[in-house]
């Protein structure tokens, strides 16, 4: 009788523990995993003859530059395509991983083939992120032939 009771208690405990692990609804963001993919280089910027240490902000990507939302949002996709007039449109889908509404804003810098800024950086564009939902950030370039790369910076709206 004693062994049966202890077995039941152990099973219940395990179930409770498992339940505790999977109680978070979708979307689930593994911030530890995302952080593990980041590469930080301990080197001052712009050393002659050295590659740039700014691996944290690669081109053709969305970079969250604000600690306030770094572990709250997740950039699901970042794509670019040509519009009918030849300009480039950047589209990024952003997911709010929290149970609270967030206000974020982003801007885009477009670069030419030599990775030089080809036009003025866009203005900050706000977008709302309801709890546990996604929204899409879009930005279009000004130029047509001088756009080869882009970089999006994202921060919390204050």
């Amino acid at each position: 009788m004693k062994s049966v009771l202890s077995a039941v208690a152990a099973t219940t405990g395990c179930l409770l523990l498992l339940n505790g692990c999977v109680q978070e609804p979708a979307p689930m963001c593994n911030m530890a995993g995302i952080a593990a993919q980041r590469q930080l280089v301990a080197m001052p910027a712009m050393l002659p003859g050295q590659p740039s240490p700014l691996i944290e902000m690669p081109l053709n990507s969305v970079n969250i530059t604000d600690f306030a939302i770094m572990n709250k949002v997740f950039v699901r996709t970042a794509n670019a395509r040509r519009t009918p007039t030849g300009t480039v449109e950047v589209i990024a889908q952003v997911i709010n991983c929290t149970d609270y509404p967030l206000n974020a804003e982003a801007r885009t810098q477009f670069y030419d083939a030599a990775q030089v800024a080809s036009e003025p950086v866009s203005a900050w564009k706000r977008f709302n992120l309801p709890p546990r939902s996604s929204n899409t950030y879009r930005e279009s370039s000004i130029g047509t032939r001088t756009v080869d790369y882009y970089m999006v910076e994202m921060r919390e709206t204050r």
Partner: peptide
């Protein structure tokens, strides 16, 4: 600044 920049870029996508 945000609204004029947004409208300007959007107009440049209209053929």
């Amino acid at each position: 600044i945000s609204m004029t920049d947004q409208m300007m870029r959007d107009m440049l996508t209209e053929p």
